[in-house]
């Protein structure tokens, strides 16, 4: 079991990386009035057939060959559903996949969101060949990070791994999250 929602996001987004996505969109949306925390991970990777979607939620299914269990999506599904929330996977072969998990915010079994800024930072910096669009919403406020916009401003030569760029990405994510949710304990 993952201790934080943000680690589930990192794990599930790695599926999109392996699915050879060109663009991965991640949305984390906290709605205090509706009492929900919604996570949407959408990619334009290789997608799955209806049968694979069904099996992907089975812990004893994986496409990898190094072990016979694949707990990533099963963990995420269980984490959401154990709060009374919902979980869905929509996928089409050759088009892409959308994973959506809704958590009930105030439920005692909801794990903390955790260090979402580090998760997004890790994904962006270590997968430079993939475009990411991350959106964080807290009630009426929101901010986003789009690596395509970043590339436009930074040019093609400078790597996201350069210390100054990497630090900027982290500060951008962390500061803007603070301003968006006012430092709320989620």
């Amino acid at each position: 079991m993952m201790p934080e929602i943000s680690l589930n996001i990192l794990d599930v987004a790695e599926n999109s990386v392996r699915a050879k996505a060109a663009l991965i969109e991640i949305t984390v949306s906290v709605k205090t009035k509706e009492d929900t925390l919604t996570v949407i991970i959408r990619d334009d990777g290789c997608g799955m057939t209806a049968d694979q979607v069904k099996r992907a939620q089975d812990p004893f299914f994986t496409t990898r060959t190094t072990r016979i269990v694949g707990l990533g999506l099963a963990f995420f599904k269980q984490a959401a559903e154990s709060t009374g929330g919902t979980f869905s996977i929509d996928s089409e072969k050759g088009i892409g996949t959308i994973v959506k998990a809704v958590f009930i915010l105030s439920h005692i079994d909801r794990m903390p969101l955790g260090d979402i800024s580090s998760t997004i930072h890790t994904l962006v910096v270590f997968n430079e060949q993939i475009d990411f669009k991350y959106t964080y919403e807290y009630d009426d406020k929101s901010f986003s990070l789009d690596t395509r916009e970043m590339r436009e401003m930074l040019g093609d030569e400078i790597s996201f791994m350069e210390p100054e760029v990497s630090l900027f990405i982290w500060e951008y994510l962390d500061n803007n999250k603070q301003e968006t949710d006012g430092g709320a304990d989620i």
Binding site: M150, M153, I158, E164, E179
Partner: peptide, 12 residues
């Protein structure tokens, strides 16, 4: 809010 514009300065 921090802006992505800062990347232009880093680039320069």
């Amino acid at each position: 809010m921090k802006s992505l514009e800062e990347l232009r300065a880093i680039r320069a």
